[in-house]
Structure formats: structure tokens, C-alpha cells
């Protein structure tokens, strides 16, 4: 499940929906349904982790000579 960690939320979402749909339609073997369930659970956990990591962080880019970005300063109060 290493590929899961790198999966975007959108891809994970689509994959999870497909797993659920496949399982609900019931045209998979028992073995498959068990591995599908495991994958679905992992996808759901991944999605939830991505959703949990919703932290606001606002920075203003500081520009040096000739408009070149040199770093950033946190922005608060907006």
C-alpha cells in the first residue's frame, strides 16, 4: 500500500467509490471481496487523513531586488 500514501485525494476518492460500487454490486468472488474491503478501508483512512490535515497557513512572499522571491512571512489577521 505504498502507492496509497502518494495518492491524491481525488484519485483516492475515485478509487474508494469504485471499490464500494464493486462490492455493492456483488459480482466479485469472496476472496476478491475481502481484499476489496481491505483496500477500501485503506483508501478511506487515506482520505480521512488528507481531510484531517486541513490546516490554514497563510504566508506572504517577500520579494528582493528585481522582484525575486526571497522567502515568506506569516500573515495573520486576515
Amino acid at each position: 500500500m505504498t502507492e496509497l500514501a502518494a495518492m491524491s485525494f481525488e484519485d483516492a476518492m475515485a478509487a474508494l467509490e469504485k471499490v464500494v460500487r464493486d462490492l455493492e454490486q456483488g459480482n466479485v468472488s469472496l476472496d476478491q471481496s475481502i481484499s476489496l474491503y481491505e483496500r477500501g478501508a485503506a483508501l478511506k483512512a487515506h482520505c480521512e487523513a488528507l481531510l484531517k490535515a486541513a490546516e490554514e497557513r497563510v504566508e506572504k512572499i517577500t520579494l528582493g531586488e528585481g522582484g525575486v522571491p526571497t522567502g515568506s512571512t506569516p500573515v495573520t489577521g486576515l
Binding site: 490554514e56 497557513r57 515568506s72
Partner: peptide
């Protein structure tokens, strides 16, 4: 909607 990391380029 969904707090994110935001970079403001002034």
C-alpha cells in the same frame, strides 16, 4: 471550505 496553505504574491 477547506483551509489550505496559501502563498500571497503581492
Amino acid at each position: 471550505r477547506f483551509p489550505r496553505r496559501v502563498l500571497i504574491w503581492p
